[in-house]
Amino acid sequence: MTQLSPLCLLLLQETSGGRIAHAIEGVKHPDLSKFLVIAAILFIIGVAGVLTRRNLLVIFMSIELILNAANLNFIAFSRYLQDTGTGNPMAGQIFTVFIIVVAAAEAAVGLGIVIALYRNRETIWIDEIDLMKW
């Protein structure tokens, strides 16, 4: 951003109070609530998928959605903190990287379980996998 600042300054001077200036302002200080709404929508889609779908693979995908919703929140808050300067903005980004790593590991383990399950039970439909019943 510091390398771009001469250009930005130039644009600011040419179109003071115009749409460009507004857009630049929006980039410099993005609105947190929009990201949170998008993340909430993603999260709800994910939860609904987990609760309603019967295919295990699809459930996995839905879990990924949930995780990504969380990631999005982290990134948004990180950017927000960078603006306000009231906290450590790097923490959110590092957490996101961690979550991606954990998600990858989880997917690997989970898919392994799915394959093992299929080999044993010849199904990945979870309403047929009801051994946890009393």
Partner: peptide, 10 residues
């Protein structure tokens, strides 16, 4: 205890 994973998740 239905045994259905979806129930537990719910």
């Amino acid at each position: 205890q239905t045994g259905l994973t979806a129930n537990y998740a719910l």
